[in-house]
C-alpha cells in the first residue's frame, strides 16, 4: 500500500514536470490585496496560469500596505495591488522593476436604505462625504492603510475635511468584515464593488453613490526589483505579469463574475494608459 502510494507520487511528479518546460525556480510569491482574493478572481486566474506555465503561485492576500512592504523587504516576487501613488513611490525608491496597468474596478459608497445624510442624490464622492460629515452620520472606515482606506483618505483631503466625530469609526479589518460592521451599525462605508456584490446577500446596505471618476480603483501588476535581494524569482514574476496583461487573460477578466452577478466585477485596462483612467 505504502509502496503504491510512493510510486503514484513519483509518477505524478514526473508527469507534472513533463507537462511544461519546467521553470528553473517554480515557486512564485504573489502579494496582493484582500479584494482580489475575496472576489474570487485570483482563485479563477491563478490555476490557469499554473497550468500553462508550470509555476506554483503562493498567493498572500494582505492589506496593500503590507503587500508593498513585502516587496520592499524582498518577501514577494510580484505584486497585484491598487494604490497607484504608493506604488509609484515604491518604484521611485527602486524596489520595483516593471509595472503594468491591469484593470480597474470601482468603489461605491454604500449605506442604509433610508440614507440619513441624503448622499444618494449628490453628484460626487467628495460632496457625499461632506454631507455625511455635516450630518455626523455613522461611517465605518477601514482604517488599515489599505488601498481602499487610502482612496477614502484621499477623498477626505480633497474636500479639506478631517473625519473625527463620534460616528466615524475605524474597523481596522478587511472589506468583508467592514461591510458587516457597517451593515450591523447601519452606517455608511466605502467599498469596492466586487466585495460588495460578493457579500450582498448578507448585507442590509444599498449602493447610494457610484460612477464618480475619483472612485475608480486601478490595479497594477508590479515585479519586485531582483537586484535588492538574492532569492527573488524575477523570471517567474515577469511571466506572471505578462500572463495577467495578455489578451486572453484580459478577456477572462472581462467575463469574470458576469454569470453570477449579472455585471462584471473588473474592467480590463492593459491596452490603456494611466492617463486614460485619470491616474497621476
Amino acid at each position: 500500500m505504502k509502496k503504491t502510494l510512493i510510486t503514484l507520487l513519483l509518477l505524478s511528479l514526473a508527469i507534472s514536470a513533463c507537462a511544461s518546460a519546467a521553470p528553473s525556480n517554480p515557486n512564485i510569491i504573489l502579494a496582493t490585496t484582500t479584494s482580489t482574493q475575496d472576489s474570487g478572481l485570483l482563485d479563477f486566474l491563478v490555476p490557469i496560469f499554473e497550468e500553462q506555465s508550470g509555476y506554483t503561485v503562493q498567493t498572500i492576500a494582505v492589506g496593500t500596505g503590507a503587500a508593498l512592504k513585502m516587496a520592499e523587504e524582498g518577501n514577494a516576487d510580484v505584486l497585484l495591488v491598487h494604490a497607484p501613488p504608493a506604488e509609484q513611490e515604491l518604484m521611485d525608491a527602486g524596489f520595483g522593476l516593471d509595472r503594468f496597468l491591469v484593470m480597474h474596478n470601482d468603489f461605491v459608497l454604500v449605506g442604509p436604505a433610508d440614507d440619513p445624510a441624503a448622499i444618494g442624490s449628490l453628484p460626487s464622492a467628495g460632496e457625499a462625504l461632506t454631507s455625511i460629515s455635516s450630518a455626523q452620520a455613522e461611517f465605518v472606515s477601514r482604517g488599515d492603510d489599505s488601498g481602499t482606506h487610502k482612496k477614502e483618505r484621499a477623498i477626505w483631503s480633497s474636500v479639506d475635511l478631517t473625519p473625527a466625530w463620534d460616528g466615524y469609526i475605524e474597523s481596522g479589518q478587511g472589506m468583508g468584515a467592514t461591510l458587516i460592521i457597517a451593515s450591523e451599525k447601519q452606517a455608511y462605508t466605502m467599498t469596492d464593488r466586487a466585495t460588495y456584490l460578493a457579500n450582498q446577500d448578507n448585507l442590509d446596505l444599498e449602493i447610494l453613490l457610484e460612477g464618480d471618476e475619483v472612485l475608480l480603483n486601478v490595479y497594477h501588476v508590479m515585479t519586485v526589483e531582483p537586484d535588492n535581494w538574492e532569492n527573488i524569482n524575477y523570471e517567474g514574476a515577469l511571466d506572471f505579469a505578462n500572463f495577467i496583461i495578455s489578451d486572453e487573460t484580459q478577456a477572462l477578466i472581462k467575463e469574470f463574475g458576469v454569470d453570477k452577478y449579472g455585471q462584471p466585477l473588473f474592467f480590463p485596462d492593459a491596452d490603456k494608459t494611466d492617463a486614460d483612467l485619470g491616474v497621476e
Partner: peptide
C-alpha cells in the same frame, strides 16, 4: 475579539487585534 469586537479604534481595539491590523498595514 476581531469578529465580535470589530477591532474598532478607540472602542474595541485590543492588543491582539491591533497586532493583526499593524501587520496588515505592513508596520511590522
Amino acid at each position: 475579539s476581531m469578529m465580535v469586537g470589530g477591532n474598532i479604534r478607540n472602542q474595541t481595539r485590543v492588543l491582539t487585534t491591533a497586532i493583526v491590523l499593524e501587520t496588515s498595514k505592513g508596520n511590522f
